[in-house]
Each structure stands twice: as structure tokens, then as C-alpha cells.
Design a protein around this nucleic acid. Structure first.
Lengths: 249, 249
DNA sequence: AAGTCGATATCGCCA
DNA sequence: TGGCGATGTCGACTT
């Protein structure tokens, strides 16, 4: 089998406007072959689990992945209108002559059912993809940048630990300033709102309790920028802000 | 045109293993017709914008929606490996004989480029879907339940406002207890961690400042359950917890 | 356009 | 498996 050659192999199998029974067979075969299966047609979607929903008949694109994920897309929006996460069991059946696709999981118990009243196309694709996505510009990148050049936080800042544990959770960077005071640094890769201030505050509080009753712990939020409300909250709680971004590349 | 009849109309147009030029034409025609276009094949994906990423050649399923959204799916995971949100401009071209799909947005400036070295299938679907998804079991549902039966919070609790504004943000339910003390209720539809406690704390703090320096403001977190750490944080800050869930249906 | 927060968030990491 | 926090979070709503 030559998946890299110029000659395409049998990656795709497609049926146009199949009868429900033929569609069912093609979908089952696709699932067995670990293919990515797509079904396009007019359908009803029911979901019941952590929440519950019902979607009346309309034209949609349904994708079944070999890892158990199910996605139901309309012609709008980045997010699927209904879905099921990886790890689910796909089931295909005929109900009163109609094609029905069910996707089930246990913990939590959730069920997604798609019932077709018209089937436009069924495809099964056997995809080969070993490549990993490499993303640049994350909080992790910002942390590395700060650790390489701690003066970006302030002159004399010395990192002592990353992911230092406190009763309130793990601190991004823990260190001390030029006068030996404890410093908690919370990193955000982009402009921050009130929630990030709350997070920093929790860590500072927890560390003050952890060290001494009278210990001075500075809290510094490092991010590209802050919203007005977040800035006010920082000031109210005696916390600081330093502008810095993840490296561009 | 009869989209609801038993006779399927021309919803789907599909090419198997098209040459790049034919694929380009089919994709452009699909975009012009406001179709949902899918392209399956071996491709490279580049993204540059809020972050940046590169994905080396592999088999993927690319979906172009008429609202401008782009999704690149591998055979694994619920989330697309790369994407572009609605509102983007799709562009299709031939680069050195290879099919290239570009998706661009301005604010923020972001670019997604998919270059194919093998094309297995191109499809265009004209989808009709006016139906809205109705979800049950949300935080909104929990709020309605509490407002209908405030005693679920505690006997004598009287809701006075929803979304009451404070300098720290809007409080889910604001009210008073049987002794006339101010009560802030924060609702969560599922089990909560430390972040929800931080949120409630912000609101209580803000309201205490807003009312009087000496005002007593109670904070009650209403959710199905809490984690250990969240429970400890609640106790530390004198906040309370009441178990309640959104209605099942 | 920006701020704020919910979500069937999803995802990855770690105890 | 559950807890916890990041995410190119997305999406809805408000200002």
C-alpha cells in the first residue's frame, strides 16, 4: 500500500443518495475499517446527558470519527450544533425504515441520536496522519521567555520555582525580588479580565498563610494588557501588573 | 424546488480524485453557491495569528462553511486541529500546481492556509436549516428553578434582582435572607472548583464596599456539588454552599 | 469593538 | 478517574 505516492489509493468510498439500508451498510463498513464517516442529509437530532436538547429536521453534515467522536454541523458556526466526545460507541440502525445513528458513552451517561429522513451522501475516508501540531505563542512560551530573562518582570527578580504548589493551586512562577520578598507571578498569554486577578489573589492569599501570618507576598500579573475592571481589582488588592507577551516566534 | 419531498434535489455535488484545477473550480463554485464545501486529502496546514502553528503533511478533512468558517479535522479528536471562525474570507488558488485554500480575517489579523499534495474528494452541499437548537439543563434553567422556589436556597430567602451589577461584575441572584441581610447567590450548573469560589468572593467583596463599610453580605454558592479545595476556600472566606441542580427537563 | 461570563465547553497534565 | 487550569477557547449579550 502506497499512501504517499502520486497514485491515490482507495481512501474514499462514497454513495450518492443511497437508500437507508445501503447507507447503513456503508456506514457500518466504514466504522469497522476505522474510517472517518460522513453523512449529509435531512435529519433530527436528540441529545440527552449532562444537559438535553432536541433539534427538529434540517439539512446537516454528520461526522463519525474512528476514535468515537461524533460531530453534527449545520451550514453555520465554527462549533457543531450537537456532538459526542471521543470514546463513544457508534451504532447504526434502521428505525421504521429510517437511518438512525446513535452515539453512546457511560460516565457521564450520554446519548446522541441522529435520525435521517433524507440521505444525500455517505462517505468513508481512511485517513493516515501521524503528524503532531506545533503551536507557538502559548502561555508556556511566555513562561520560558520570563525564565530566560527574569528582568522582564522587574530588575532583580529571581525565579525559584515553577508550578509551586499552594493550597489554592499551583503558582505559575514563584520567586523573590531584590529585597528578598516572596513574589507570585501569574502568566496570561493575552489581555486579562477580572478572573485572572481573582486567580492571582487566591495564590497570594494562600501563600501568605502558608509562609507566615506576617509574611509579605507580592502578586504580579504578567500579560499583554488588562481590562479597566481588572486593573481596578488589582489596585484594590495591592496586586501589580507587568506588560509582557509571548514571543512572536 | 422541493427540498422536503421524497425526491432528493441537487443538494450534493462530488468529485472523486479531481485534478487540482478541477478541484479549484468546484470549490469556487461551491463557495459562490453558498454551499458547505468539504475537501479530503493529504495536506499541509499553516496558521498565523493570535498564535502560530504548522502541521506537516497528513490526511485531513477540510470543511468550508458559507458563513466563512473553516475547520480542519484529522481522524482524531472532537476539536478541529486547525480552524478559522465565521466571518473569514475563503480563497482558493493553485500554487505551483497544488491546490491551496486560504482563510483570512482582519481583527485580529489571522491567516489559515491549507495546501494539498493529494486530493481524494471534493464535495459541495447546499444545506437548508432554519431550526434552532433548544437546550435544557443550563445555568439559566437553574436560575429559573431558584426564582420559582427560593426556599431551595434557604427558607426565608427573597430574591430581589438577577444580574445585579457590582464593580466586580453582575451577580446571578441578589436578595435578602429572613433577617434582612444581603445575600449574593452564584449559580453553577455543575460541580464547581476554586474558580467559582473566587467569583463569588469577588461579588461579596464588591457589594460590601458598595453598600456600607460595615454591611454584612452573605455569599452562597448554589451548585450540584463542590470539590474539596473549593469547599476549603469557601470555609476560609465565610462563604456558604447549597446543593441544587438544574431541572432534568 | 471590547468586556464579561457561560459552556453538554474540550484538552492535557498530574495526583 | 477526578481535579485543575489553559485555550488561537467559542458564542451570546451588553456597553
Amino acid at each position: 500500500m502506497n499512501r504517499d505516492g502520486a497514485e491515490p489509493v482507495d481512501v474514499a468510498r462514497t454513495l450518492r443518495e443511497p437508500a437507508p439500508a445501503a447507507a447503513r451498510e456503508a456506514i457500518e463498513r466504514g466504522i469497522d475499517r476505522e474510517a472517518l464517516v460522513t453523512v449529509v442529509g435531512r435529519c433530527t437530532v436528540e441529545y440527552d446527558g449532562r444537559a438535553a436538547s432536541r433539534l427538529e429536521p434540517g439539512d446537516r453534515h454528520v461526522m463519525l470519527k474512528p476514535d468515537g467522536a461524533t460531530l453534527v454541523h449545520t451550514d453555520e458556526g465554527q462549533q457543531p450544533v450537537n456532538w459526542q466526545p471521543p470514546g463513544c460507541d457508534h451504532g447504526v440502525s434502521l428505525s421504521d425504515g429510517a437511518l438512525r445513528i446513535e452515539s453512546l458513552r457511560s460516565t457521564p451517561a450520554e446519548r446522541l441520536a441522529v435520525t435521517f429522513e433524507r440521505i444525500d451522501q455517505v462517505s468513508a475516508f481512511v485517513l493516515a496522519d501521524e503528524r503532531e501540531l506545533a503551536v507557538v505563542g502559548t502561555e508556556e512560551d511566555l513562561r520560558e521567555r520570563i525564565l530566560e530573562e527574569p528582568a522582564l518582570v522587574e530588575p532583580g527578580f529571581t525565579p525559584l520555582a515553577t508550578e509551586r504548589d499552594t493550597p489554592a493551586g499551583a503558582v505559575d512562577i514563584y520567586g523573590e525580588d531584590s529585597e528578598g520578598r516572596a513574589v507570585v507571578v501569574e502568566l496570561k498569554r493575552r489581555r486579562v479580565g477580572p478572573d485572572a486577578v481573582g486567580q492571582l489573589r487566591r495564590y497570594v492569599d494562600a501563600l501568605e498563610r502558608d509562609l507566615h501570618a506576617d509574611a509579605t507576598v507580592r502578586g504580579i500579573l504578567v500579560a499583554p494588557s488588562v481590562t479597566d475592571r481588572a486593573e481596578r481589582l488589582l489596585a484594590e488588592h495591592g496586586l501589580e501588573f507587568v506588560a509582557a507577551e509571548p514571543p512572536e516566534r
